[in-house]
Structure formats: C-alpha cells, structure tokens
C-alpha cells in the first residue's frame, strides 16, 4: 500500500496538536461505541440511494405499463404512465406469432437442469479444492481461476460445428451440457465449503474411515444446502437470461427459450412494443418473484463470494 492511513494524518496533525490530543482522548471515550462521528448517515446518502433505486425500478415499471396497454396508447402524447387492461389481448397476439407458453417451459427446463448440475459438480469440485489434499491442488485451482479470464463465447463457430457433429442442434443438450459446471461456481462453492465446514470435522470423519465421497454426502451436502440453493438460484437466473448461444443453436419455434422467442416478435424494422413487452413481462416475472422470495440470500451469497474475488 502506497499511502497508509498513518502517513496521511501525520501531515494533517502537525498544525493542529490540540485536535490530535482531543482525538486521542475521544478515542478512549469511544471505545464502547466506536466511530460515532462517522456513524451518522448523511441525508444526501438517502437522497442518492432513493434516486438510484427509482432509476433501477422505473424501466421495469415502464415494461409493465407498455405490456398492459395497446400500442396506440404508448405512442400518444403524453404517453400513458399507468398500467392498462390490454394484457390478455396482447398475450393472444404473442401466442399467435410464437408458442410462448412452450418457450417458458423450455426456459424452465434448461435453467433447472443447468442449476442442478452446477450445484452438484461445482460443490463436489469446490469441496475437493477446499478440503482434500492432493498433488497439484494449488496449481489446478489457479488454472480454474484463470479460465474465468478467457472469453469462451468467442469459440462460437467451433461450438456450433461440435453441436452439429453431435446432432445436438435444436436440442436441450446443446444448452445444458456445456453449462453443467463453471469456474465461477467452483470458486463460489469452494468459498462456501471453507466458510461453513471446519477442518476438524473432516479429519474426524477421515479417521473414522469415511471415504471422501461419504464425507461429501453426509457432512458437506447437509451443511452447505442453503448456500448451494442460493448459488443454484443464481445459475438458474443467468441461464434463463442467456441469449446468444440459444439463438445460435435453436431453430424450431417449439425449442425456443423465452429470450429467443421474444426476439422473434421483433421484426427487423418495426417493433410492436406492447406485444414485445407483454412477452417480456411474462419472461421476467418469474425471475422477479424468485428475487422477492430469495433476493436477500442472493445478495448475501454474491457478497460472500466476492470477498476473496
């Protein structure tokens, strides 16, 4: 660290010995309730945060407004700013263009499968990296981290060729198998295992003669269940939102995921916003509901995973 906090104050304190002494004595008196001065929350924090939250939520509100009105209502001046009653009618239009209900089911199947596979494979690998001793452990783990800096999306063309060779074009396999485990997930689950399971527990189980898989099944899994579920939720959401890869490998409307289906509603030069937004509402609502239910844990999970990032 270039400028430590100790250097900085020295210059600040030179001209003000009194305030320094005062600060010292204040420190003593504040030992029980530390950092009182900074602990007040300035009013502008609340103002800025409120504005930020409004900016974060208004576009979603706008999606509901447009999705529940007809197109002419949106192009009126001033535009409508309240939800209307046209949602079901728009839904009929959507379904006449693409099988949208089917696409939601496809999205759910793919997201669910990827999430479950990742929960299993990432926790298993995370457990190995966290608690098992084996040759090359450090190096292999660094390798896992390094792969995160690789933009694998750029291997799009060969990926397509591989999928054709496997006859996986237009199937769930193409979406599920490549996503079954991730470096990010291995890292996340390793953090979780380190944070929740003491080494003593593992050692005790080992001296009792437990196999490592038995340790995973009987000690690790029950203890990380909650965190793994949060991770699974995170994976399901990101998979649900995937766009480029499904767009490349899916051809028939019956196989489309919701994101690809929405894109089909948009022709090249015109967009009927009310239909597109109706579909967007349907494809976004499940995520928002999940988020309301488990967002608190998701926030905690993301922050825990980040500490050593």
């Amino acid at each position: 660290m270039p400028v430590t906090s100790k250097e900085q104050p020295r210059t600040a304190g030179v001209g003000r010995p009194v305030s320094r002494a005062a600060a010292r004595s204040r420190r003593r008196s504040l030992d029980s309730s530390r950092r009182r001065r900074r602990e007040g929350t300035p009013w502008f924090s609340y103002v800025v945060l409120t504005i930020s939250v409004l900016l974060a939520l208004i576009p979603l509100y706008w999606m509901f407004v447009v999705g529940s009105n007809d197109t002419s209502a949106v192009s009126r001046f001033p535009p409508v700013f309240l939800p209307g009653g046209n949602f079901l009618h728009n839904l009929g239009v959507v379904d006449s263009i693409v099988p949208f209900g089917r696409s939601l089911i496809n999205s759910a199947i793919v997201s669910g499968a990827v999430a479950l596979l990742q929960m299993f494979f990432c926790s298993l690998a995370g457990f190995a990296f966290a608690k098992l001793r084996f040759r090359g452990r450090r190096l292999l783990f660094l390798l896992v981290i390094a792969t995160m800096a690789l933009p694998s999306q750029l291997g799009l063309v060969p990926m397509y060729l591989i999928m054709s060779k496997l006859s996986w074009i237009d199937t769930y396999w193409a979406l599920v198998v490549p996503g079954a485990v991730s470096a990010f997930g291995v890292f996340w689950m390793r953090q979780v295992v380190i944070g929740t399971i003491p080494d003593e527990l593992i050692d005790a189980a080992k001296s009792d003669g437990c196999s490592t898989f038995r340790i995973y099944r009987s000690i690790v899994v029950p203890n990380i269940r909650g965190s793994a579920a949060v991770f699974g939720l995170f994976v399901a959401m990101t998979t649900w939102n995937d766009f480029l890869w499904p767009l490349v490998v899916l051809n028939t409307p019956d196989m489309f995921t919701s994101q690809v289906a929405i894109q089909q509603l948009r022709t090249q030069y015109t967009i009927d916003y009310s239909t597109v937004m109706t579909a967007s509402v349907l494809a976004t609502l499940p995520l928002l509901l999940l988020f309301v239910a488990a967002g608190k844990q998701l926030v905690a999970g993301i922050m825990e995973g980040a500490v050593k990032g």
């Binding site: 649900w240 919701s258 967002g295």
Partner: peptide
C-alpha cells in the same frame, strides 16, 4: 433494489 436490474433478462433490458 439495486440488484434487481441485474436479474432482468438482457433482451428485456434492451427492448425496454
């Protein structure tokens, strides 16, 4: 509230 945009699908974000 600040994390809500991040769980919103990219396709939706763009169209909105």
């Amino acid at each position: 509230a600040l994390l809500v945009p991040n769980v919103t699908p990219l396709v939706t974000v763009t169209l909105v």
